[in-house]
């Protein structure tokens, strides 16, 4: 297991390095840079005549005049060595400060969504497979189609409406008003958890619907395996039997697609965030691109892609733990 973990770890680091190069290139692609934008913002309408030399001076001031290679290594070196993601030009502060809480909140929503997805879909899928062709099973199938067919921003609106009616007005956003600008405290975390369930449910909805069917299908296959009958024939109690033998293999396709789920959640988050009034990174990313505020955009892209790469690493380790044939290279 140690050797396997080490191999995957090295693989992850290499992937992240390549990803960082790609992210940097993407940052470079839009024409112009923040120096142009800055000069335009500062002097447009003032009657001041801006020369190419002035822009060059701003560029030198911001450190954008160095060759690309050098800037890449400055940038990535700062991140790796000092946790410094560079300057957020438009905000005139550091990227870390700009992203700060938003990054954590995005990750919070991500993990809450994953948790809801797996905590619901795995047990329910197993249950549906064990009680195949029962009324419960058919009911779940109908729910699954519904879950797949509904766009989740619509679901967000519907849930928002009902949550508002049943639980009071302050359900949008991630915090109640009194905590929104308060420093972090236990009470604030609790307040966040109370708000987190709504976006988590909205984002998990379609994944739950889909993954229930996945677990149900693989669990049904696994239940028919001879090894399950053999285990039953040596007197293993039914619940223990289901968990130890078929379920362990049935969740394999779920675990192997954790990375896809993370990716999907990041893609769907911005529109859900707009509907629910959440502060997260998607909106900031868009703004950073419009402002050519490249280090903010870069940091966000890097955070999202690193999360996906890291979750793939976690998924690999979990798969190897679930099925030892994987790490033995069989």
């Amino acid at each position: 297991m140690l050797r396997f973990t080490l191999e995957r770890l090295i693989g992850m680091v290499i992937t992240m390095a390549l990803v960082s190069v790609m992210v940097f290139l993407i940052m470079e692609i839009p024409p112009g840079d923040y120096a142009d934008r800055y000069a335009f913002r500062k002097y447009s309408g003032t009657g001041v005549n801006v020369t190419e030399a002035d822009i060059q001076a701003i560029r030198a001031d911001l450190g954008l005049d160095k060759p690309m290679m050098l800037r890449y290594f400055d940038w990535i070196g700062g991140i790796v060595l000092r946790g410094d993601f560079g300057q957020a030009f438009a905000f005139e502060t550091s990227v870390v400060k700009v992203i700060g809480d938003k990054g954590w909140l995005t990750l919070g929503i991500l993990f809450a969504t994953l948790l809801v997805t797996y905590l619901v879909s795995i047990p329910v899928g197993i249950f549906a497979a064990v009680r195949r062709a029962s009324a419960m099973d058919y009911g779940l199938t109908i729910f699954s189609y519904l879950g797949l067919a509904l766009p989740n921003f619509l679901l967000a609106l519907v849930l928002l409406y009902f949550a508002n009616r049943w639980f009071g007005a302050d359900i949008g956003g991630l915090f109640s008003d009194q905590y929104a600008d308060a420093p972090w405290s236990l009470a604030k975390v609790w307040d966040m958890i109370k708000h987190l369930w709504l976006p988590a449910v909205v984002l998990a909805w379609s994944a739950v619907a889909y993954q229930i069917q996945t677990v149900r299908a693989t669990m049904s296959d696994e239940l028919n395996k001879l090894s399950v009958t053999v285990a039953r024939a040596r007197g293993v109690p039914e619940t223990k039997l289901l968990i130890k033998y078929p379920a362990r293999l049935a969740i394999n396709p779920i675990v192997s697609t954790i990375g896809f789920d993370v990716n999907r959640i990041f893609s769907e988050l911005p529109i859900v965030a707009v509907v629910l009034g959440l502060t997260e990174l998607g909106e900031l990313l868009l703004r950073a691109y419009l402002d050519l505020d490249m280090y903010v955009a870069g940091a966000i892209l890097l955070l999202l892609t690193f999360t996906i790469v890291f979750m793939n690493f976690v998924s690999d380790l979990l798969l190897a733990w679930l099925d030892p044939r994987i790490k033995l290279g069989a």
Partner: peptide, 18 residues
């Protein structure tokens, strides 16, 4: 298992692979 044991035709499939 304790009183009546049973063996089947396919040894590979009789064991859980994990």
């Amino acid at each position: 298992g304790g009183e009546i044991g049973m063996i089947f035709q396919e040894p590979m499939a009789s064991f859980s692979p994990v």
